Amino acid sequence: MPFVTTRDDTDIFYKDWGSGPPVVFIHGWPLNADAWEDQMKLVADNGYRAIAHDRRGHGRSDQTWGGYDFDTFADDLDDLITSLDLRDVTLVAHSMGGGELARYIGRHGTSRISKALMVGAIPPVMVKSESNPEGTPQKVFETLKDGILNERSQFWLDTAETFFGANRPGNRVTSGNKYAFWLMAMQESIQAGVACVDAFSQTDFTEDLKKFDVPTLLIHGDDDQVVPIGPASQKAARIIPDATLTVYEGGSHGLANVPGTKERFGRDLMAFLRG
């Protein structure tokens, strides 16, 4: 299996399919590169090079004890991109991965980047505060950490319901969607799981978003129960200089995997790559 060794000697697993202009996929929490396989095959079948890595502490990458902050995640991504000498890259990120993408641009710029796509992404900032009154209350994030620490296997099964919108009438979520989520979540270390909650809930990406200077597409479901659209993509679209927001009516947080919205997302992804 291919790995890149980062500047702090962490081994990061990645998949590398096809050939052509590179598209780098950045997964959400608590998943790994496998979450992007449908889209990776789609772009590789259409003349692009699809690359996706497991974030440290997730999947097949090293389970470090520390380094679960967005500066480190962004530097890991930079190590991947520079080690493979990727140029004219389109970055595609989901959820927490949107924070990784934003911090990457904030720290490393866009000299190797041509476009950015974020779906159900967390920026600019998740936690509720005086300056972000529409955000998510801190107690919600404490509940997430408690679930991981108390009985994470059942917690992940329960979380899959709202992640994909399986609790909504008429949903098309499959058992396979939920079991795949559970499997990937169980491959994340318990240390990474808890530490990442603190990282993605507290980090403010506003200044990173202001540094975007490439075409950016934001896709978000208006029924996202994990990252509500209002304080996330709707706000980010007003900060990023060249951003387009596409709203999926009834779309869940896991819209890229659920039958129906998955196909639409694939079409929008290809149109963005070709545009």
Rank of each mutant, 00 (worst) to 15 (best):
L183W: 09
A185D: 00
R152V: 11
L149M: 14
T162V: 13
I190N: 08
F164Y: 13
A180G: 08
F164K: 01
L157P: 01
I148N: 01
G176Y: 11
I148M: 10
V173I: 10
N150P: 05
Q154M: 12
A180E: 09
W182T: 00
N150W: 11
T143C: 05
A192C: 12
F155I: 06
F164V: 02
N150M: 13
L183H: 14
E142Q: 15
G165T: 01
F155W: 08
R168S: 10
R152Y: 13
T159C: 02
G176M: 07
S153E: 10
V194Q: 04
N167S: 10
A192K: 02
G147D: 04
L157D: 08
I190K: 14
R152F: 10
T162G: 06
A192G: 14
F155Y: 09
M184F: 04
M186P: 06
L157I: 12
A160M: 03
M186W: 08
L144P: 01
T162Q: 04
T174R: 05
T162R: 03
L149K: 10
G193P: 03
W156E: 03
R172T: 07
G170A: 07
F155V: 07
Q187Y: 11
F155S: 08
P169Q: 14
V173N: 04
F164N: 02
Y179S: 06
T159V: 03
L183G: 09
N171S: 14
E151L: 11
V173W: 02
F181D: 00
M184G: 00
S175L: 15
F163A: 01
S175Y: 05
A180K: 06
D146H: 12
P169L: 08
Y179V: 10
L144I: 11
A166R: 13
T174C: 01
S175E: 12
S175P: 08
S189G: 08
N171Y: 15
K178T: 04
G193W: 01
K145C: 15
I190L: 07
N177F: 03
P169K: 15
E142Y: 09
F155D: 04
M184T: 00
A160E: 00
G193N: 03
I148T: 07
W156F: 14
T174G: 03
A192S: 12
N177S: 13
D146F: 09
K145T: 05
D146S: 11
A160Q: 02
R172G: 05
P169G: 09
A185Y: 00
I190H: 10
Q191L: 12
A160H: 00
L183T: 07
E161T: 07
D146G: 07
S175I: 07
A180C: 08
N167T: 03
L183S: 11
G170K: 07
A192V: 07
Y179K: 06
S189I: 14
S189Y: 10
I190W: 08
S175V: 06
